[in-house]
């Protein structure tokens, strides 16, 4: 299906659902997809796999930027299972020949997209931070951190179609509803021959300790500058008075000072809070990829050349062990007087 490049057209996103409810990542992908479709002067289609997907949610995909929604539904598609999802997506690729497919770099997207890209002989780029259309050729330009996150690389797929990419969750704002948008919703029954699975989902155990790193308005994050795990207690009063979630760099998690769910960066979570306070973080691209879209960034680091200052709005070149207590005290004072 890669021979005739011209037969492929349209920008597609992979929307995700959980228990029939469309998930936030879908609206983030609409933001990306709408921009690409407009630049390419083409339509935006959202495809979604599931079972009994909420009809209002499907309409909301239209209201938020899709020109068309195509569902494939069956009881076997209720939860993500790689084989039936891939078979359905390949069926859609065969029938509709999309030019571009973007999905979230979620546990679903990062498993499904490579599985499909192999069979479709498509180009796939993981964890893109910027997507654009090349002017002369109309090719999708995919930019992502590379080599351990120290540099950025722009990648394209010159000949093969579709062009596929995953993008980091929360690396862009979800699309918002616009008045009087119209679009088509096509609800397809998934073909029976697409539904076989050698994986059976027997149970689901929800996380108990949800500390809401990605939902928090304020994130206090620490890097190797915190020196040892015990020093993390220094951040507690500040987190308390700012109602902040605690995040960390890969270095800190690799040293077991904090658990993996706290990790922010390319190999951890992406956050975009109103305020990001970085203490003792040098700012590798690996880390920046997970936090640089924060609205306001404050950095404290002893190294005046630390890269973190390049993305910060306010920086203090100084020792976090001296700055942190003073800042905590000042903020507490303000909070108490309010």
């Amino acid at each position: 299906m890669t021979k005739n490049k011209q037969e492929h057209s349209g920008v597609w996103i992979l929307a995700e659902q959980s228990d029939g409810q469309v998930q936030r990542i879908s609206y983030e992908l609409l933001t990306r997809g709408r921009d690409l479709a407009d630049k390419r002067s083409t339509d935006l289609t959202a495809m979604i796999f599931g079972s009994d997907i909420n009809a209002e949610d499907l309409q909301e995909l239209i209201d938020c930027g899709a020109d068309r929604v195509i569902t494939m539904e069956a009881a076997a598609l209720r939860h993500f299972l790689v084989e039936p999802y891939a078979a359905c997506m390949l069926k859609i690729i065969e029938d509709y020949r999309p030019e571009i497919i973007i999905a979230g770099a979620t546990s679903t997207g990062r498993t499904l997209m490579p599985y499909v890209a192999i069979k479709a002989h498509a180009g796939l780029t993981a964890d893109c931070t910027v997507l654009d259309i090349e002017e002369d050729t109309g090719n999708l330009l995919q930019t992502r951190p590379a080599i351990g996150g120290n540099i950025l690389a722009t990648i394209k797929t010159p000949q093969h179609r579709p062009q596929m990419a995953t993008v980091r969750p929360r690396s862009t704002k979800p699309a918002i509803k616009q008045d009087s948008r119209v679009g088509e919703i096509i609800r397809l029954k998934a073909p029976a021959e697409c539904l076989a699975s050698r994986i059976n989902r027997v149970d689901f155990i929800p996380d108990e300790s949800e500390h809401g790193l990605q939902e928090a308005d304020v994130v206090v994050a620490v890097g190797r500058g915190i020196k040892k795990g015990e020093n993390l207690s220094l951040t507690e009063p500040l987190c308390g008075s700012l109602e902040a979630a605690l995040g960390a760099t890969r270095d800190v998690v690799d040293r077991d000072w904090l658990s993996y769910p706290h990790q922010i960066g390319l190999s951890g979570k992406t956050v975009n809070p109103k305020l990001y306070l970085a203490f003792g973080i040098s700012g590798t691209i690996q880390h920046l990829a997970g936090m640089q879209t924060s609205e306001t960034i404050v950095a404290v680091n002893t190294d005046p050349d630390a890269q973190i200052f390049n993305v910060a709005d306010f920086g203090i070149v100084g020792d976090l062990f001296e700055v942190l207590p003073v800042l905590t005290e000042r903020i507490n004072k303000i909070r108490n007087s309010q």
Binding site: I151, Q159, N310, D313, F314
Partner: peptide
């Protein structure tokens, strides 16, 4: 299928008010 077309360092994104303490 894919080709790397460009490798670059990220641009400075913001104007940082930086104070040495």
């Amino acid at each position: 299928p894919t080709r790397v077309v460009k490798i670059f360092r990220p641009q400075v994104a913001r104007q940082c008010e930086k104070i040495v303490a």
